[in-house]
Computed example of a mutant assay.
Amino acid sequence: MGCLVALSVAVGAAGAAGCASTEYVNEGPGQPTPRASGTLPPGSVGVCKQPETKRPPIVSEELWAHAKPCTPRTPASYIRLGYAKDGAAGADPEAEQLAERVLAALAEGPKPDGGNNQVTGAIRAVRAYAARKDELRARVVRESATGQTCDVTYLLNTMSAARSKLSGGEACTAEVFDPETRADACLFDTKRPEGLWLSSGWSCMTFTGALGNEASCHQICGYDDYCARQVYCAAGDVNLLLCTLGVCLPEPSAGIK
């Protein structure tokens, strides 16, 4: 009120100068959002591709093209993509032949009659190969404590069916952050059923690992206790198979002991 009086009687510039006004400070544009800056948004999974390696057959071609090379500064939580060797590092025919064997076994794996023998045979070959490779040796798990062969076919067939229902038929089994589109994208090539079958239990076997949670193995197993028991038997081998095919999860991975 005093300021209005001062203006009305025109007491001069001194009186007018005493009237305070609201000032709006220009705070600038602020920090860019994670998606705009190219950094990994909270909740998303990062990927990078190992230098001088080939695109894994089960990985999306577009994602492979967009993935940045792995460097010593790449966070340990990122998934490392790439198998065999390429370029100056020289060829690795054994790795390529093993990957072909694993893919052939996975193609037969869903068959109730003989499928599990195909997969477990491939697992034994991968274990023998991994034991000689520094980058894979730590992922080799010991044989099942029960001495019984894991029922991988039953496990992944049950998970595939339940996961399809839970996702409304969505083919993609795992999404990661695409650094070029700056949005989540499917990690796997949805035209390769072998990769989708192997990764049908992705969320519970490779990341959550906790029973009873929203995306737990019990739910993906359709609340089938026998299926859930096979998770503990086969989860480590699923991790090893994925890495042999060029999708190496961070170590140690939650849920994989």
Results as ranks from 00 to 15, higher is better:
141 V>C: 08
206 T>H: 14
220 I>F: 05
126 V>C: 09
121 G>V: 11
179 P>D: 10
224 D>I: 03
129 Y>C: 07
102 V>F: 01
185 A>R: 15
156 L>K: 07
101 R>V: 09
108 E>M: 14
166 L>T: 06
125 A>W: 00
111 K>R: 15
181 T>H: 09
123 I>K: 11
205 M>V: 13
166 L>P: 11
221 C>N: 11
141 V>L: 04
177 F>C: 08
118 Q>D: 06
218 H>D: 15
118 Q>G: 02
173 T>N: 01
217 C>G: 08
141 V>N: 03
121 G>H: 06
193 P>C: 10
147 G>A: 06
171 A>C: 08
167 S>L: 08
108 E>F: 03
214 E>Y: 04
144 S>C: 15
181 T>Y: 03
202 W>T: 00
161 A>Y: 04
105 A>F: 01
165 K>N: 10
141 V>H: 03
204 C>G: 05
202 W>E: 00
230 Q>P: 15
233 C>S: 13
131 A>M: 03
199 S>F: 14
127 R>W: 05
196 L>I: 03
221 C>F: 09
185 A>Y: 09
126 V>L: 14
226 Y>G: 12
228 A>M: 01
194 E>G: 00
209 G>A: 06
124 R>G: 02
122 A>T: 07
224 D>K: 05
124 R>P: 01
157 N>A: 04
210 A>C: 10
132 R>L: 12
189 D>I: 07
138 A>Q: 08
146 T>F: 11
233 C>D: 01
188 F>M: 15
200 S>Q: 02
149 T>L: 15
128 A>P: 06
130 A>C: 12
103 L>H: 07
152 V>S: 00
143 E>C: 08
171 A>G: 02
105 A>T: 07
176 V>Q: 01
118 Q>S: 09
142 R>M: 12
199 S>L: 15
132 R>G: 05
179 P>N: 11
185 A>S: 15
179 P>L: 10
210 A>G: 10
171 A>D: 02
204 C>I: 08
122 A>Y: 00
183 A>F: 03
118 Q>H: 08
192 R>N: 13
216 S>W: 00
108 E>W: 02
223 Y>V: 06
212 G>A: 05
121 G>L: 14
231 V>Y: 10
140 V>S: 08
103 L>G: 06
223 Y>T: 03
172 C>I: 13
104 A>E: 06
148 Q>R: 15
190 T>Y: 04
149 T>G: 09
176 V>F: 05
101 R>E: 06
191 K>M: 12
217 C>T: 05
221 C>P: 15
224 D>L: 02
213 N>M: 09
141 V>G: 04
188 F>C: 11
198 L>G: 00
108 E>L: 15
190 T>A: 11
195 G>N: 10
109 G>C: 08
124 R>Q: 06
170 E>F: 11
181 T>G: 07
157 N>F: 02
127 R>S: 12
169 G>A: 04
132 R>I: 05
138 A>E: 08
169 G>V: 04
190 T>E: 13
102 V>H: 02
137 R>A: 14
